[in-house]
Design a protein around this nucleic acid. Structure first.
Lengths: 221, 221
DNA sequence: CGTTTGACCAGATTTCGAAATTGGTCATAT
DNA sequence: ATATGACCAATTTCGAAATCTGGTCAAACG
């Protein structure tokens, strides 16, 4: 096989297989052989892409996370008003609820993710958190966010709120979360004009932050 | 032993022992014999108060929950302004963080509470939820709460927010939660006068709702 | 007599060594 | 040069024996 395009395709196939099995059987019960078989490759081939089992499954989750951020970027690209914290939250919430693996990640579902969870947080958090705070600061600088508290503090409260909604069973309607976030973190009036001005920068910010993750994924070809 | 006062005292002693061991070793690893020994009674005596192990430990949690609501009532009694949703939330949050067993309950700590958690929710939720919605409706009727959504919906969002803060590690500062709740659920201006007028009814509402729980506890003498 | 107790037992849980499985490697096949 | 699956050390699973525990109740107690 030519080492160029087909290699990435095969990696994707393996990730697809791993994602499917992860969701169906959980991390603990999914073996590398299962994944290899379902992907139609030999066991050794999997190790040509990832250095061990854990890295493979972390890649599955990383890919899922990248996809969800790409969705976010698309949403803001299509409609600048979606750059508002409350609207972006609504999109992201619906997104996570619709992607079982991400939902498992946010809801600390130890049965499906097992010992991946701690490793996952260790691997993803630092940079994304930073990008998110930057996003909030960008909003604050344009009167699109409360300014009576530092963005870093609002970020803590925001995460707690989002986490709370994601953990609740059954998950409350996305509109209720959007409404709660709007009241809790946005100023009384949000300028549509400023929002339009800020949107491209939000797109750039998230695109940039996701680029690093994508690079990491591509290391597996 | 006279069956009157000493009996209740003994029940308390057993609950104390059970609470202590529950916190130290967890539900799964705490035996009735351990509890009996620590309480200075025979094993059979425990069964004179509760019909089985599960009921005993549920009583421990029920008592803890009753105490925390009594704290709430005391707070509003001492200062009518504490009847505000944001202030009451702050008190309750600090309260829960300070009572490890309650925190375990809210944070779904399966390691300490084990199989008690589902039973606990089944036993406590229905009436308390109702009382809480009534409290919100009372606030709403006095312009102390947003009225653009039904209280029942706000209750869902509120619970998600509180839950989110309780689950976060480390727990954010109580003031941040109070602030978030104030913005998310209270109207822009809160009338101190109306608050003072409403406080006694809030006290009555919570006192009444906790009375049922206390009755249930006293069944064990 | 009413109250308390701990010996008792069925059923649940833990233990522990043997058997089976699996992550990761690498000599071989392609 | 690339892909594979047989192989092995290490972990996990299994199962039966041993231990422990929830709940009862006949006896002890006062």
């Amino acid at each position: 096989m030519p080492p160029a395009e087909d290699r990435a395709e095969r990696a994707e196939r393996i990730l697809d297989a791993a994602a499917e099995l992860l969701l169906r059987a959980g991390y603990r019960r999914t073996t590398i052989e299962d994944v290899a078989e379902r992907a139609g490759v030999g066991k050794g081939t999997v190790y040509l892409h990832w250095k061990n089992r854990e890295e493979l499954f972390l890649a599955v989750l990383l890919r899922e996370s990248v996809r969800s951020i790409e969705d976010l970027v698309r949403a803001v690209d299509a409609d600048p008003l979606a750059a508002r914290l409350s609207r972006l939250t609504e999109v992201q919430y619906a997104n996570v609820l619709g992607r079982p693996l991400l939902r498992a990640g946010y809801a600390d579902d130890a049965d499906t993710l097992g010992k991946l969870l701690p490793k996952l947080h260790a691997k993803l958090d630092p940079r994304h958190d930073e990008a998110f705070v930057e996003y909030l600061e960008l909003l604050a600088a344009n009167d699109l966010l409360r300014t009576d508290r530092p963005a870093r503090e609002l970020a803590v409260a925001y995460r707690a709120v989002l986490h709370g909604f994601l953990v609740e069973t059954p998950p409350p309607a996305p509109a209720l979360l959007a409404d709660t976030v709007a009241h809790a973190f946005e100023p009384v009036a949000v300028s549509t004009m400023r929002l339009r001005a800020v949107a491209p920068r939000v797109v750039a910010l998230f695109t940039e932050s996701v680029a690093l993750d994508r690079k990491q994924l591509e290391r597996a070809y």
